[in-house]
Amino acid sequence: MAIRQHELTDSYGMELELFLIWMKNRGMTKATQQAYWQDTQSFLSSVHPAAISQLGKMDVMRYLASAREKGAGDEARNRKLSSLRAFFKALIEMEAGTANPAALVAKSKQEKHRIPVYLEEQELEQLLQTIQGKYYARNLAIVLLMAYAGLRVGEIHRMNIPDLRPDGVIHILGKGRKWRVIPLPEPLHRVLRKALEERIASRQGKEQPFFVSQFGRRLSIRMIQTVADQTIASLKEEQPSLADKRISSHKLRHSFATMQIRSGTDIRTLQELLGHASIETTQIYTHIDNKQLQTAMGNISNKIPSGLLGDS
């Protein structure tokens, strides 16, 4: 029997409110807050009406097992576990709990070194050529930041005018509220300046969002994704061979990383450019395509002794 919202609020309202306050104080993005909040409510629905002080490791494992049976993969399961770890940690820090049963549950091992989906350089050039319309400069800047600077959708959403410096350096507020500095190529800097010149005046008081909507508000994450999705859809119409390729705004970031690796950028520098907390996350971009494999093997072809089968 499904648990209604008012029943959850009656039983766990205080704890959920404390969790929300904790997440805001930690500076978590709204998207992260929403995801953790939904996961936690889903978990609490599964254990209702048990008191939180009575919950243990088995309750968490039972919930995660049920999620897997409903189709959740390793990545989704691990996110739900992260949500619950954060929830119980919040209660401990807010002096409303004494234990973190989710911390005792191991994360699922995910497939490593999976080759990410990305676009080739010529496909990226074709992608840019499909951009048109009233907000051309703005939309071009958004796609360029994804494909040629590796920015996440949320990072573009948070950009403010002062973040772009006169010398072409841009300051980006990334995951975990960590800043990173990216020196932009001149062509990209030029497009951003043009987008700024044509930008609609903001109607959000003292805020200075870099990208704004037609109504003068900070461009939403959903709208930024829509700009990328519509551009990708246009590319697929012109290039039917890409129809089955699962390309999204985040795959443009993959394309940036792939270009960097192919250009000889070392993995530590790429980690800084992408804003990864762990080098392991960056290592998925060290994939090599067949052409590079053939070139690598061709380099040793003349080192294999001749006449191995008696031929001269």
Rank of each mutant, 00 (worst) to 15 (best):
A201L: 15
F210H: 07
E272R: 05
R138A: 03
Q129N: 08
Q260Y: 06
I232F: 07
S278Y: 10
K206E: 13
L188T: 12
R85S: 06
I92K: 09
S255Q: 09
L84K: 09
R138S: 03
Q225I: 04
F43T: 13
R262G: 00
V47N: 06
I288D: 00
L128R: 06
G133L: 09
L308F: 13
V227K: 04
D289L: 04
Y136N: 05
M94N: 10
P185T: 08
S278W: 09
N25L: 10
E17L: 10
D244C: 05
P185F: 06
M14A: 11
D229A: 14
K30W: 09
L91Y: 09
H48D: 02
H287W: 03
H157C: 01
H276T: 05
R138T: 09
E15N: 13
G176M: 04
E186Y: 12
I142N: 02
G174K: 00
E95T: 14
R222A: 12
A195C: 07
A2N: 10
M23A: 06
Y148E: 04
Q294R: 13
L252F: 09
I267K: 02
T29D: 06
R177F: 01
S312N: 10
P166Y: 07
W37L: 09
I131E: 00
T269K: 07
P101D: 05
